[in-house]
Nucleic acid binder design. Structure first.
Lengths: 126, 126
DNA sequence: TGACAAATGAGAATGATTATCATACAATAT
DNA sequence: ATATTGTATGATAATCATTCTCATTTGTCA
């Protein structure tokens, strides 16, 4: 299990790497053939542990996964639920803030909740 | 429903306000008597919508709720799973970063993943 | 007080995720 | 190349948190 990436895990990774967006386990499952539910979840866990992908728990819906290509924050629209990436790396700052408590920060997840551009405009138009 | 807080919702809020920590719906349910499961979930939703409490989706376990008394970030230990609060308000910075995309940021959730102090020391001792 | 809307709670239902386990595959040793 | 041993797979059952349903209760306000 550990360092190796099985053929199935590789296809899961390729879907995430090529689609350049946030996908649920179910969406990945639907886009592939001849792969079992459990295998997809196992691959996602494995790839997450290896630091190749990231799991986002946003709101109440099922978790979404993204391929890690850079450090960015997420804008979660509380109206339509979409998640948009914004380039911004706050890890250094966050790491500094955590230092006082003796924590080691490996990765910082920043989810900004509010309204996306479209919903902002829709609300203003009312 | 909207502005009013029912007696049951009030007791849920009081648990969160007094315990000063992160609680799951189940924990809140267990600490109260004569209150149904659905009612606890409904109260948590209602209080979240009113902006009195906050739902945190950390990792794979069930969501946790916290009473909002200030803006802070969360340190999630990837070894023992505990969530610790650290005083740090990054909302201004995050709002600024989101401005370029036309987003409105109401609240920023910052989850720093790494090792808590205890687990850091445990790892160093090995 | 009466009428109507909203909230409650018991339990069923849902939906996402995980566990089980027999089979298939891969790597290594013989 | 073949046996051996361990690991991955996938079909399905199971689990767990959360939501839905609906009959009953409670609250509101005319």
């Amino acid at each position: 299990m550990s360092g190796r990436i099985s053929a199935q895990a590789k296809t899961v990774l390729e879907v995430l790497a090529s689609k350049r967006c946030h996908l649920t386990a179910e969406e990945i499952l639907a886009s592939l053939e001849n792969i079992g539910t459990a295998t997809v979840y196992r691959a996602l866990d494995h790839l997450t542990e290896m630091g190749l992908i990231r799991r986002l728990s946003v709101g109440k819906r099922s978790a979404v996964y993204e391929y890690i290509r850079d450090q960015h924050m997420h804008l979660v629209c509380s109206r339509c639920g979409t998640v948009v990436d914004v380039q911004a790396d706050m890890t250094g700052m966050i790491r500094e803030a955590a230092k006082c408590c003796g924590h080691r920060v490996d990765f910082a997840e920043v989810n900004a909740h509010g309204l996306c551009k479209a919903c902002c405009e829709a609300e203003a138009a009312q």
